[in-house]
Design a protein around this nucleic acid. Structure first.
Lengths: 110, 110
DNA sequence: TGAACATATGAATAATCGTTCATATGAAGA
DNA sequence: TCTTCATATGAACGATTATTCATATGTTCA
């Protein structure tokens, strides 16, 4: 009589979330995985700023900032408001802060 | 009498966090910015697993998983426990779940 | 309408990164 | 100690990405 393989805890059947969610999560965190974009988000922590103001604060060229703002906007992390010739960007919701806070806690609490 | 430039809200002096923190945050989120690593972390949600078990669950080669586990371990997100010939990996703390949860909320709540 | 200004876009380049294949390490059992 | 098995490591390749430079878009004001 053939013996059943011993059942180990790690052999429990596992299911992963749907591929689309995994992809979306990866794409979202990829946006946070760049120092320039993190700097931009921190710059907007206390309120809106123009593209020029951001690029001066970060010491980077204006096109570099515009490219990154586009990425941040595509991820719904920032939004822009036009006033005359200039566009003021701001954090589009509180999720930015809570995601960064969650990461910060991992770095400090250990 | 020269007129002061109108003070706009965006002209407030801003300070960014120290460069090292920004770099550490970026590096941490970069680890989350890959579907394979997110899959691995989800696989370990319910408990430890061997490298082989993970690679079979994800349908990927063993070296691919080992490389990613190394990255996850370097970020203190997973840890390994040796038992005989096999090594069981597990989430090293609850931060993994809270970071992913924060990202998940951004994706769903809007 | 035309000049001036703020921002956006596109192409190109350099650097980073994930996977694969081949192989090395290290533990267990005969 | 030799073989086997699980995992780790290293080099190489392909793909993705951040920045730069040049230029386009679009708004304001004369």
């Amino acid at each position: 009589m053939p013996r059943e393989k011993k059942i180990q805890p790690q052999e429990t059947k596992r299911e992963l979330p749907p591929e689309e969610l995994l992809q979306d999560l990866g794409d979202l965190f990829k946006v946070f995985g760049d120092t320039t974009r993190i700097r931009i988000m921190y710059a907007l922590y206390e309120g809106e700023m123009s593209v020029m103001a951001i690029s001066e604060l970060l010491g980077m060229t204006q096109p570099a900032i515009s490219h990154q703002l586009k990425t941040l906007k595509a991820a719904n992390l920032v939004a822009g408001r036009r006033q005359g010739k200039t566009i003021f960007y701001y954090l589009s919701d509180e999720h930015v802060k809570s995601i960064i806070a969650a990461g910060y806690e991992h770095l400090t609490e250990e």
